[in-house]
Each structure stands twice: as C-alpha cells, then as structure tokens.
Computed example of a mutant assay.
Amino acid sequence: MAFADQVHLAGDSATYRVNPGVKKYTLSDLNFKKTKLGNYELTQALQPLNVRGKGAVQVKLSISADLQQLKLAILTGSGLQTVNIFTGDQFAAAREQYHFLMQNLIIRQVLTKN
C-alpha cells in the first residue's frame, strides 16, 4: 500500500484526500503517532473484541510527512490482512464506527471527502 493523493476503499462510495489546511498539532491532538520516517499514523479499532476472542477490525490511516498524501486500510486485529467492512451485516457496527471516525477527521480539517 503506497501513499496516494486520494484514497478509496472497495465498497465505500467516498474518496478521501488530505485537507490542504491540516496542521501537525491537530494530528497530535487526534492521537496520530509520528513514525521513524516522519509520517503520521493512526490505528483505531472499529469494533470491540468479540466473545470468542477474535481480534477487532481496525482502521489504519497514514499521512505523509509533508502532509500531502495518505494511505487508508481496514485490517484484521493482527493488522496482517485487509477486510472489506462494506459487505454483509456482520460489519454493520464497524461501518458505523468507520463513518463516524472519517466524519470527525473531516470536521477537524484533517481530510476532505470527494
């Protein structure tokens, strides 16, 4: 998964890009962690652990050090495989949390939605 000017997840109708007015301190306020390469990364669970002990689905969002490009993926709890949360009823809660997170990032002027 490489950085891109805009990202689109399979099954999602929205395309996202980095807001040109994003500030580094806003990323810190929203719990983005700075990587060794200077990029900003946010990993957040989209659903609680279930009773069988399987890991939660998580969203991973990375913004390049120059605040121009991003990467976005929905992953298993281990972070090793991608998951399509836009199919089936089993991910209804995860979809709701995903849309809430993305809307919050738009309101905080981190992302723009096309």
Rank of each mutant, 00 (worst) to 15 (best):
G11W: 05
V59P: 00
Q97K: 12
M102F: 12
F91P: 02
T82Q: 14
K54R: 09
T15P: 04
L46F: 12
A92M: 14
Q97P: 05
S78T: 15
Q68K: 14
V59S: 05
P20L: 01
Q44T: 10
F86Y: 07
E96M: 11
L75A: 13
F100A: 13
K24P: 04
V83D: 09
F3C: 12
H8C: 10
T82L: 04
N104G: 04
L61F: 02
V7I: 15
G88Q: 01
G79W: 15
K34C: 07
V7K: 13
K33E: 13
N104L: 08
L30P: 03
L70Q: 06
Q109F: 07
M1T: 10
V7H: 09
I106W: 10
I63C: 08
N84C: 02
Y25H: 11
Q47C: 12
A14M: 14
V18Y: 09
A14E: 11
D5P: 02
I107G: 00
Q6E: 08
A56N: 01
H8N: 08
Q81N: 06
Y16W: 13
L49V: 10
H8K: 13
R52W: 00
A93Q: 11
Q81F: 01
F3G: 10
L49K: 09
P48E: 06
K60E: 12
T112D: 14
A4N: 04
V7P: 07
K23I: 05
A94D: 04
N114L: 15
E41Q: 14
K36I: 06
K34Q: 12
A94L: 07
Q68L: 14
A93P: 05
A2L: 07
S13W: 09
L105G: 03
S13E: 10
Q44W: 12
L72A: 08
L61M: 08
L72R: 05
F32N: 07
T82V: 12
G88V: 01
D66Y: 02
Q97N: 13
Q81S: 05
A10P: 03
R95F: 08
N50M: 00
Y98F: 15
Y40V: 12
L111T: 04
P20K: 01
G21E: 11
K34T: 13
F3L: 15
Q103S: 13
N19G: 03
Y40K: 11
D89H: 11
G88C: 02
Y40S: 14
A93F: 10
K34M: 12
A93V: 11
L111V: 08
E41I: 06
T76E: 00
V83Q: 09
V83M: 09
L105Y: 02
L75F: 14
L67S: 04
T87W: 02
M102S: 08
D66L: 00
S64F: 14
E41C: 14
S13T: 09
K71I: 05
V18G: 11
K54L: 01
Q81C: 00
L61P: 02
F91E: 02
A2K: 06
Q58D: 05
N31M: 03
L67F: 04
T26W: 05
G38E: 06
S78E: 14
L30K: 08
K34S: 07
E96W: 03
Y40E: 08
K54N: 01
L37C: 10
T82E: 15
F3Q: 10
G77F: 00
R17F: 14
V51T: 06
T112W: 11
G55H: 03
Q90K: 07
A92D: 10
K60N: 12
L61H: 03
